[in-house]
Design a protein around this nucleic acid. Structure first.
Lengths: 210, 210
DNA sequence: GGCAATTGGGTAGTGCCACTGTCTAATATG
DNA sequence: CATATTAGACAGTGGCACTACCCAATTGCC
């Protein structure tokens, strides 16, 4: 198919497709002439993938590209794909690596306490220390130990995630699902927490309606 | 104190403080003359709060304003504050309300199944339906029932959140902590999940190091 | 074969956002 | 009184995610 049909089938504007092509998010079609290229089902799918990561999850186009690249390069290696994908930080500050040094003592303590084995380079460590630092700068007493119960719940969540991914045999699909379930599910999980919070709050404070 | 000291003490650039004042995120100081205003500790704190919501959590300035407004207006009513705060959607699409109609059948089914009592207006419902729709548009079999185990974990998370908030007696602080723990903790919780995922993945796939 | 319609590819423009810089008149301070 | 600082208003900046336009080549259709 040509670009117009691709646009129609994926629900993405023509000009936007060209933009994604330029940015390398979408692989180019098979050129049949100077002004003609053939796209196929894989392009439609890829576009939906992009829209999901950018639109639903809210990743930046650049971050989405990294995720997508990791996904297609290391097709088989779920572990590797996730490793790269985790390096993506949501829109926010992004000081360069700081790798090597143990700059995140609280995350380390937490990881140790949980008996987890995770790379020192996992940027999630920094997120945790940053959050705790922010909370304390607001005079809220909060340290890694306060996160322990959450870590326990996160562990179960992760087990669930991995259980699901393991049911897939095709290594291509596996890497893809790993990324999708990790990233796309995040807003939904936070949404669940909010629903649960409202429920719990209602239950405790009585029906404080409005 | 005057603006320069406020800037020094909060670590926010002078011009940025003026910007926040203009946007209404930061209440104006007590004007002592046409070109002089007095700021106090509450301004320092508020600035740290803003930076936490905008910088760490990644809220937009406009969203942060809504949260902050809700927090200061309905000081006592934790339930109310959270209700308003939940209305904030992270940077992403934002179709207007669609209130009233039951447009989110999957979220509703989930809420029913969990026996939760949450307002039909809670925007988290939409997030859930959106996510599920996105997943299915990518040919991934995923419905609200697949979310049930996560909902169960979310419920426990929420209980924890509320437990902590209940320890606070001062209604002012209470509302503030509710907002902070709900919002600021989100990146940390997702970070925990990623750490747990890496750990679990390593445990299952053997030490697939790199 | 002729011709309107479509296409690829490139460049420039748009709108929004979160600041940032500059200017002015009015203090504050030594 | 001289110098520095400030509040407040406004214009400018840089980044991002598109979006519009243009052109030459090609296609489909009569």
């Amino acid at each position: 198919m040509r670009i117009s049909e691709l646009g129609r089938r994926s629900g993405v504007a023509n000009a936007t497709i060209k933009y994604y092509l330029r940015e390398g998010l979408l692989p180019p079609g098979r050129a049949t002439a100077a002004t003609q290229a053939e796209y196929d089902e894989s392009h439609v799918r890829r576009l939906r993938l992009i829209r999901a990561l950018v639109g639903v999850r809210g990743l930046s186009v650049a971050s989405a590209k990294q995720v997508l690249d990791a996904m297609t390069e290391h097709r088989g290696d779920t572990h590797e794909v996730l490793g790269i994908a985790f390096g993506i930080r949501p829109p926010g500050e992004g000081a360069p690596d700081t790798s090597g040094e143990e700059t995140n003592p609280e995350a380390s303590a937490l990881v140790d306490a949980m008996g987890w084995s995770v790379s020192a380079a996992n940027p999630a460590r920094r997120t945790i220390d940053e959050t705790l630092r922010a909370l304390r700068s607001l005079d809220i007493e909060y340290d890694w130990q306060a996160l322990l119960p959450y870590a326990e719940l996160a562990e179960r969540t992760a087990r669930h995630d991995l259980d699901r991914i393991e049911t897939i045999t095709d290594p291509l699909e596996k890497a893809e699902q790993a990324v999708l379930l990790t990233f796309l599910l995040e807003p939904a999980l936070m949404a669940l927490r909010r629903l649960a919070q409202e429920n719990e709050s209602t239950a405790r404070h009585g029906g404080g309606d409005t």
